[in-house]
């Protein structure tokens, strides 16, 4: 148990740092890379701390990779047509965003310890709370649909980590993956519609 906690602590830290990077970076490609690695890290964390089947974790990792590719292609199209919107910086400086990520992580730790849920494990709850907080911050601070969408997906990623560990219905897990894809599709559609408008 103690060893598992140590390994998962490292992965938690990696996922949270990557989540912080998604929040702190201004360049959309950097954000996307950090987001992809964070999604994969979430999958590895799930495998380390719960009894989730290996196939499901594999699907989670593959899902992150495919969505990253989808966003990259949409972002590249947007880069040629609406570079100003895509590269618009949030009004808050990156140093404050890093501070906000640290603050969220501290709050998440406190919440997971003070208000534990009997079914979900504390490490997973910490990641879930942190990523939901970071995702919400990204979504509200960003000006382009692509970046705001990455925030929404960061929230969903964080949520999925807890959800997959407590949910044993395959249908529910499949539907959650479907919702992830739907949100990704909507983000790409919003980005491309914006292009259509500016063109």
């Amino acid at each position: 148990m103690f060893e598992a906690w140590n390994i998962s602590e490292l992965i938690i830290l990696a996922v949270v740092v990557l989540g912080g990077l998604v929040l702190a970076l201004d360049d959309w490609r950097g954000m996307l890379l950090a987001w992809a690695l964070m999604g994969m890290g979430g999958g590895v964390l799930l495998q380390q701390t719960t009894e989730v089947p290996r196939e499901l974790v594999g699907i989670q990792i593959l899902d992150s990779a495919l969505l990253t590719l989808l966003f990259y292609l949409a972002g590249r199209r947007a880069q040629t047509n609406i570079p100003r919107t895509l590269n618009a910086r949030p009004v808050i400086h990156w140093r404050f965003r890093i501070l906000a990520a640290l603050f969220l992580y501290t709050i998440a730790r406190m919440m997971a310890i003070r208000f534990p849920l009997p079914i979900a494990s504390p490490p997973l709850l910490i990641v879930t709370y942190t990523l939901i907080g970071i995702g919400l911050l990204i979504a509200t601070l960003s000006r382009s649909p692509l970046k705001a969408g990455l925030g929404v997906l960061t929230m969903l990623n964080g949520y999925q980590i807890s959800y997959l560990s407590v949910q044993d219905s395959l249908l529910a897990i499949g539907l959650m993956a479907g919702m992830n894809l739907l949100v990704a599709f909507l983000i790409v559609a919003l980005t491309l519609v914006r292009q259509e408008v500016s063109a």
Partner: peptide
């Protein structure tokens, strides 16, 4: 979620649709 796309007019509505999506 799907209704986020129905909120866009021609050349407007992006901000509202994004906030609605969140």
């Amino acid at each position: 979620l799907l209704l986020a796309l129905a909120l866009l007019g021609e050349g407007h509505g992006m901000e509202g649709a994004t906030q609605y999506l969140i």
